[in-house]
Design a protein around this nucleic acid. Structure first.
Length: 275
DNA sequence: GTCCAGGAGTAAG
DNA sequence: CTTACTCATGGA
């Protein structure tokens, strides 16, 4: 089926390519995307999204794209600073996608010390090897692997896919999950405790924990600091240490820190800040 | 050949 | 709490 839905203040192009999710590919006039076992061809025409789906997953995608989000309150804060105001030009329209926690956990373990295009190809290889095969009209795709399917993978199996030293992290993480670990339950914890708990997984440090929290557990205040954000923090707050800068972000942006991080990240990459 | 990428683990100061 | 080193992989 094909359906058009309202999507005001949403930029599909930016949101699909800003490295928050790894399964969106340019396709025809828009993107072909996979989340969990679902697939969609989506394109944007002004304030409308046109979704093409096998079944009726409109509600799922509306929720996934966070079309209910309103970031105007954030914009009021960030325009007060000349430097952060500039990021709005590059980043306005980005939405934080609501991803599945298991998918985010595995994907962002793979993201460590890696680049966006290679992360995408690794996630696809992992899905092709361990995810259930589905059809989207004439397109064949693989769902993201289930826990059960991925837990049979050995370290050497995973290394053969090209994940490198992250293979051991994945195996240990799958072992920790194997006794019925409830990732969704982390949503109920206070932010700091959820981060601390996520960091107990192998291959999950502070940055990856914040990505999982922000992109899959509804922690809108999560603020992942990678090489790009580190550069932009030094640009914004040259007098502060990196820890002080993050504290400053939390003080200034509160529950908006997460989307602010996406704005800054996208901006820093767009202008190749610090390079 | 070197450098870099949405860093983490580990040891050491 | 910080720095320093190592860890695969592949594209630039």
């Amino acid at each position: 089926m094909e359906i058009a839905i309202q999507a005001r203040q949403f930029d599909l192009q930016k949101s699909a390519t800003c490295a928050q999710a790894f399964r969106w590919k340019p396709y025809q006039e828009g993107f072909f995307g996979v989340a969990q076992e679902k697939a969609v061809y989506v394109r944007q025409e002004n304030d409308q999204l046109i979704l093409t789906m096998q079944g009726n997953d409109v509600n799922f995608w509306e929720h996934y794209f966070a079309l209910d989000a309103d970031y105007s309150e954030l914009e009021q804060i960030l325009v007060q600073d000349e430097k952060t105001a500039e990021s709005l030009v590059h980043s306005r329209g980005i939405h934080i996608f609501r991803q599945d926690p298991f998918e985010a956990l595995i994907s962002f373990i793979l993201s460590a010390n890696n680049n966006f295009s290679r992360i995408c190809s690794l996630v696809e290889r992992l899905s092709n090897a361990y995810g259930e095969k589905h059809c989207f009209f004439d397109i064949e795709y693989h769902a993201f692997p289930s826990r059960e399917a991925l837990s049979v993978a050995t370290e050497s199996d995973l290394q053969a896919l090209g994940v490198g030293y992250r293979a051991a992290y994945l195996v240990k993480t799958m072992e920790k999950l194997s006794q019925g670990y409830d990732l969704q339950a982390l949503k109920e914890l206070p932010y700091e405790e959820a981060i601390k708990e996520l960091e107990t997984f192998s291959g999950v440090g502070n940055k990856v924990a914040n990505c999982i929290a922000l992109f899959s557990l509804d922690f809108s205040q999560a603020f992942p600091v990678d090489v790009w954000v580190k550069r932009i923090l030094e640009y914004l707050y040259p007098e502060l240490s990196s820890k002080e800068a993050v504290d400053k972000i939390h003080e200034t942006y509160g529950e908006w820190a997460g989307i602010m991080q996406q704005y800054l990240f996208h901006y820093a990459r767009a202008v190749q800040l610090g390079k």
